[in-house]
């Protein structure tokens, strides 16, 4: 089970200790994250909720190696990423992280197949091996029949499914989802959440998801609340923290 009290989990995949993130805007220092501790086990599906500006996306960016913390450390599968150089971090990201964004962020001039293939271009896989991986990933999101379609020829839900296929095609260690249903209608959102749940249950993927949607959060095994840069576990705790 996920922990936020700084005590180690036996099967901890992600370990965060004393994480601070401070931005300087003008002459003012903004403390987005303050002394955050977190342990996430392998195969866990964790949702992060909280008001806008609470630091959810910042936490996701730090976990994905897109940003560096002001203090503290992040260890993923034994690798401490907080002190990695830019290039090392990029390499690490390619191997360990699958990103799913709210706005899908597909490349519009590439087909669904080519979009999903992108992370594999960084590997040494042959063309036929890449094809096989892409077809499998698109099969998982039930879009194998749309692989030659361009993003403009797909609905929002389908685009997000292609984005999920792109995130999982290289078999990353964990998935980071930033409001994956935020731009979708209820039905499409449910489809996406079903896929994420399947990835967690059937493929034992570790998933960390930021969301504003309580129904989306319900699909996760644990929901953590961020408020003013502090992480608290459970709804009741969050209410307490907010009060």
């Amino acid at each position: 089970m996920v922990r936020v009290d700084g005590r180690e989990l036996s099967n901890s995949l992600i370990q965060i200790r004393g994480l601070d993130k401070t931005y300087r805007r003008g002459g003012e220092e903004i403390h987005v994250l303050q002394g955050l501790n977190l342990d996430v086990g392998k195969g866990e599906f964790v949702a992060f909720m909280g008001p806008s500006g609470s630091g959810k996306t910042t936490l996701l960016n730090l976990l994905g190696g897109l940003d560096v913390p002001s203090r503290g450390k992040i260890v993923v599968d034994g690798d401490e990423i907080t002190h990695m150089s830019g290039n090392k971090l990029t390499e690490w990201r390619a191997r360990h992280v699958g990103f799913i964004f709210q706005m899908y962020n597909l490349i519009p001039v590439l087909t669904a197949f080519q979009n999903v293939e992108l992370p594999l271009l960084l590997t040494k896989l042959s063309k036929s091996e890449r094809r096989k991986h892409v077809e499998t990933a698109l099969g998982v999101v039930a879009l194998a029949d749309r692989m030659n379609h361009y993003p403009r020829q797909l609905s929002g839900g389908q685009e997000q499914r292609v984005a999920i296929a792109r995130a999982i095609v290289a078999d990353p260690t964990f998935l980071l989802c930033d409001e994956p249903t935020g731009d979708l209608d209820r039905k499409s959102a449910d489809d996406i959440l079903n896929i994420l749940t399947r990835l967690s249950n059937e493929y034992a993927k570790t998933i960390l998801m930021v969301t504003h949607d309580p129904m989306a959060a319900e699909r996760a095994q644990a929901t953590l609340h961020l408020n003013k840069g502090v992480l608290v576990e459970g709804v009741a705790a969050a209410a307490g923290s907010l009060s």
Partner: peptide, 10 residues
Amino acid sequence: AVLKAVGFTD
């Protein structure tokens, strides 16, 4: 930015 996020270098 997405290319960089998925692992393409600077």
